[in-house]
């Protein structure tokens, strides 16, 4: 058995892979957030960015494929590891007690699955336009999709924005454990700096989520408005 296959079959190897895929997904989130924040730079900036992405279809689909693979691995490992964990304690305690495990760490699978559900919703909404089709169909004068208008129109709906905000809260829970956990899983933690590393993790999770949430929030509050300031 080669070192790699043995490693990937082991509990530690799979946990390590969870960590690595988690980091990759977080890197994607960072890039995604930077793109999204262009909303604050105005209609042109966002649309320019969106069109640039679409213009390079090969790269886009390569990235999407990679992302899907990483995401699927992450989800698959999470489900299989959790199933093993459940099996490892077939009889539960009558009295459960938790000393230090955070709420986030204890709800990783739940928050993970809810984020997955949100992701599907998100794709149906802003990528495919199955939800909120009208806003999705906004066009620029040259006939291309007006991403800026689509976003602002979409988030004007309190229900849709609410779904996004709740999902971001769940994502925060998920990331707050994930981003401090990977240091340990990958062996990069440090006995003295463990608290610092953990703060970096939760800090990053908070920045990401606040960044994402700022968009529906500011739209709802009317800070960001439709082109021309119309409602």
């Amino acid at each position: 058995m080669s070192g790699l296959t043995r490693c990937l079959g082991s509990s530690i190897g799979r946990k390590g892979l969870m960590g690595i895929t988690g980091i990759l997904l977080s890197l994607f989130l960072i890039a995604h957030l930077i793109g999204n924040l262009l909303v604050f730079a105005g209609q042109d900036a966002v649309n320019h960015y969106a069109h640039a992405l679409k213009a390079n279809a090969a790269l886009l689909w390569f990235m999407r494929g990679g992302l899907f693979l990483v995401f699927a691995t992450h989800v698959y490992l999470a489900l299989s590891l959790t199933a093993e964990n459940r099996r490892a304690r077939p009889v539960k305690y009558v009295q459960e007690h938790t000393q230090v495990a955070s709420l986030a760490s204890r709800t990783m699978v739940l928050t993970g699955l809810l984020v997955l559900a949100y992701l599907i919703f998100h794709l149906l909404h802003l990528t495919k336009g199955v939800i909120g089709h009208e806003a999705w169909s906004s066009k620029l004068p040259d006939g291309s999709q007006d991403v800026y208008t689509m976003v602002v129109l979409g988030f004007k709906s309190p229900i849709l924005s609410g779904v996004y905000l709740v999902s971001m809260a769940l994502l925060y829970l998920h990331l707050s454990h994930g981003l401090k956990s990977f240091w340990q899983s990958l062996g990069w933690n440090h006995p003295v700096y463990r608290p610092l590393f953990e703060k970096i993790g939760t800090g990053l999770a908070a920045i990401l989520v606040i960044g994402f949430a700022s968009i529906p929030l500011t739209i709802l509050l009317g800070v960001i408005q439709l082109p021309g300031g119309g409602n």
């Binding site: 509990s11 946990k15 590891l81 093993e84 230090v100 955070s102």
Partner: peptide, 14 residues
């Protein structure tokens, strides 16, 4: 057949 670590450190506390 032990479970997998999820870095919750209940072990350390106990």
């Amino acid at each position: 057949g032990f479970g997998n670590c999820t870095n919750q450190y209940e072990c350390e506390a106990a």
